[in-house]
């Protein structure tokens, strides 16, 4: 079942085409990576999902139905460019933002206090935002994004500005949210986290979709059939590392066993990083 469906969405600003006929399907309870270089059109696509801007043509379906203003309560959005009112108290501000998502004051207060304890920032409830470190402000923003338990979560560069410990905390939270039933759209330039978290990805460049599929399938598609081999030759010269290209791994293995003792044999899959760079630079030519 696809929870989010984007059908043939196009958007232009003046004469500049920002999105050209983009279609994606995001299965329920999955993490979907939205990849692309700066200026590819990711932010515009995300703004269309949030109904901040309207597409020129095309349609967005949420759970099979076209988006309506009521869906605001079903979407949580953590923008890349994010901030808080500096002079406002942390707790007050979190309640205000939760209220704007349609929660009552009482309910927001209850759930927020729970999250503040979970993230270890409960003692900051009555502090002004300007007194918080950047990392702590990011935690508050993350909490505010998920507080109304939306069915669709959109994270734009969620890990920027976090230390490794908090990146880990956040990753676990994101996985937990998915396991609880949320569908997650995830936009980032950090390819390592894409490989770690995403089930499916789409790569766009200059408003055009250039790649789509599951992370596993994509890696299979772009592999160049090279293998990392370690073996001990019979002549006793010690362990030898080899990188070999071959379309027939069986033949390769029997060839190696005839020469020595096989220690390890691994297929080299391209990293998402390599795929990203290759595809974007070749589509730019």
């Amino acid at each position: 079942m696809d929870f989010l469906e984007i059908n043939n969405v196009s958007k232009s600003y003046g004469t500049k085409k920002v999105l050209n006929d983009i279609s994606i399907k995001v299965p329920q309870q999955s993490i979907y990576g939205l990849l692309g270089p700066n200026g590819a059109g990711k932010t515009t696509l995300i703004r269309i999902l949030n109904q901040i801007t309207m597409p020129d043509t095309g349609q967005v379906l949420l759970n099979g139905n076209p988006l309506t203003p009521n869906d605001i309560a079903n979407i949580g959005y953590l923008p890349e460019e994010r901030g808080l009112y500096k002079k406002m108290k942390v707790g007050e501000q979190a309640i205000y933002l939760a209220q704007l998502k349609g929660m009552t004051k009482k309910e927001a207060d209850k759930r927020l206090r729970h999250w503040f304890v979970k993230f270890g920032i409960a003692s900051w409830w009555d502090k002004k935002v300007e007194e918080l470190s950047k990392g702590m402000q990011q935690k508050v923003q993350f909490i505010v994004t998920v507080i109304h338990e939306p069915k669709l979560l959109i994270f734009d560069e969620p890990f920027s500005g976090f230390d490794p410990i908090n990146v880990n905390l956040l990753k676990n939270e994101i996985l937990e949210l998915r396991d609880k039933g949320a569908t997650i759209l995830f936009s980032t330039h950090n390819m390592a986290s894409v490989e770690e978290l995403c089930d499916n990805i789409m790569l766009i460049n200059k408003g055009e979709k250039i790649l789509e599929g599951s992370v596993y399938d994509i890696k299979q598609r772009f592999k160049n059939h090279s293998y990392d081999v370690v073996y001990r030759p019979f002549d006793g010269t010690g362990e030898t590392h080899l990188t070999v290209s071959s379309t027939n791994p069986n033949e390769l293995i029997s060839d190696i066993i005839s020469k020595g003792e096989l220690v390890s044999f691994n297929e080299i899959l391209p990293s998402m990083n390599e795929i990203f760079i290759n595809l974007v630079s070749s589509s730019n030519q």
Partner: peptide, 16 residues
């Protein structure tokens, strides 16, 4: 201007 320079605007316009 405060909302715009603080970048809180993006969070808020996704709600209202």
């Amino acid at each position: 201007i405060e909302e715009k320079t603080n970048r809180i605007i993006e969070v808020i316009v996704s709600s209202v």
